[in-house]
Amino acid sequence: MTALPATPVFRPNAPGRILRLSWERTLIELRQFFRTPEQVFFTFLLPVLFVVIFSTIFSGEIEGPPGVEDVEFAQYFVPGMIATGIMSATFASLAMTIAVEQHDGLLRRLSGTPLPRSAYFGGKIGLALFTAALEVVLILGIGVALYGVNLPTDPAKWLAFLGVFIAGVSACSLLGIAYTRLIRSSSAASAIVQPPYLILQFISGVFLQYSAVPPFLQAIASLFPLKWMVQGFRYAFLPDWVAVDDYGGQWNVDLVLLVLAGWLLLSFVAARLWFRWDRTGSA
């Protein structure tokens, strides 16, 4: 006697299924991303162009106190570009694409299927992780190949780099998801996302030495994650004396990670509270 094969019970929220669908979503997101030239341009080429332009124009050195070796400007500039590149691949990219998907009904279409919401976010974070990592590799590659940037040799510095990367990517991705609440139509997305991001880049000392930013702007920058990401990556790439000029004498990597963890928590709560699955009617 042969037993009939039992109908498998459908468990929509089984961890294995969510993982598998997050992976499916990541693959589709990547495919869509790399087939949209505008997105690839803004996410990758813009930061890469900035690295090339700034490193070429400001080819000088940052002078240290007597007795230490000066630091090439590119060595100072590239870690900041990594931070801002990550923010572009996570916060800016996610906020803009998700806002469009909310308003044009793509999310409504997905919400009519048995796709768990967590898998939708899984796909977005998978996309952000992949593009952010690619961005880091690109910027570092150009910095090392063209502008003689020295990679850290101390494993502890690489560990800090990794920690800041993971905390920064997670916090900024969730922040981008929460931020979609402020975007009232898909055509407004870029106008709502880019200005604050651009201002943060300036006051966080991405394009200039942080010590050149007026103190009251530094105080504002310190409220947001970008300044801390820049600081964390600079720690990994620069000698300690640079911190004396720029960050009050200490790199404070523990504080960097703590602030980013705080932003991670805050963004998670905000994303839970503010994210709307369907905003087709609100435009």
Binding site: V100, G105, R108, R109, G112, T113, P114
Partner: peptide, 22 residues
Amino acid sequence: GGPEWRARLGIVLQSAGFFEQL
């Protein structure tokens, strides 16, 4: 209705975002 219910439904909306690149 949860995902189990959604799995038994098909919905063709009047207009919904499209997957232009796929």
